[in-house]
């Protein structure tokens, strides 16, 4: 006896909807990555620092290309070597009347928590952090769950506001949420985190 075919879920990997389907010959970033890049631009971030991750590589490529940069950097987008210093460098911008964003992956919160709490949060400095998630659905690394599955709870426990995005909403929603999270950070004078679950979108989940 054979099982009946399982109908595809809307937006599931390999079953992209019209709004997310990669078009033949498309040269730009996949729509979800493009949406993250657009949301970061719309967020009002003057400078964007990133700590590399395969999931956010297309985001960085899109941001750098939009600025006319090369080699992973532009005038307003640049790499940093660790999440802790990213909180210090980008988190300090409001002291100079500007606003920063960090793009990273969520296991980096293990490196960043002391800076995030005792500097950004304690000094009431707005910062937008967009982090792709590891350790959820689609994750292949058996160790990374140990930290990453707890990230939303950890951040919540520490009073850091978190918004989550996943396959259940389209690229337009991702863009809007990220942009508005930047406004929320400035409005609350606090760091704000957007966790992006790329699994079952057109992006790389792990």
């Amino acid at each position: 006896m054979t099982s009946p075919p399982v109908p595809p879920r809307p937006g599931a990997a390999g079953t992209a909807t019209a709004s997310t389907a990669p078009s033949a010959g498309r040269t730009g970033p996949p729509p979800y990555a493009a949406a993250v890049a657009a949301g970061l631009r719309d967020s009002g971030a003057d400078l964007i620092g990133y700590v590399p991750s395969a999931s956010v590589a297309p985001v960085i490529t899109a941001l750098v290309a939009a600025d006319g940069g090369t080699g992973g950097s532009s005038e307003r987008v640049f790499p940093l070597s660790r999440e802790e210093e990213a909180m210090g460098v980008l988190g300090a911008l409001p002291l100079a009347g500007r606003f920063g964003a960090v793009v990273m992956q969520d296991n980096g919160f293990g490196n960043a928590l002391t800076a995030l709490t005792t500097f950004n949060a304690a000094y009431h400095l707005p910062l937008l952090v967009v982090a792709n998630t590891r350790g959820g659905l689609g994750e292949y690394n058996s160790m990374i769950h140990t930290l990453c599955q707890h990230v939303p709870g950890l951040l919540d426990r520490l009073g850091i506001r978190v918004f989550e995005l996943d396959r259940r909403s389209g690229p337009g929603d991702w863009r809007d949420v990220i942009a508005e999270a930047g406004a929320h950070a400035r409005m609350t004078f606090r760091p704000v985190v957007v966790l992006t679950h790329f699994w079952s979108t057109d992006g790389k989940g792990a």
């Binding site: 400078l47 988190g91 300090a92 911008l93 500007r98 500097f119």
Partner: peptide, 25 residues
Amino acid sequence: HLYLLDAMGLAGSVATGIALGLERP
């Protein structure tokens, strides 16, 4: 004076951020 009351090791990063925020090409 911006005193960092904790976050040991972050003074250089914070100063880098302020410097980048003020720098004009």
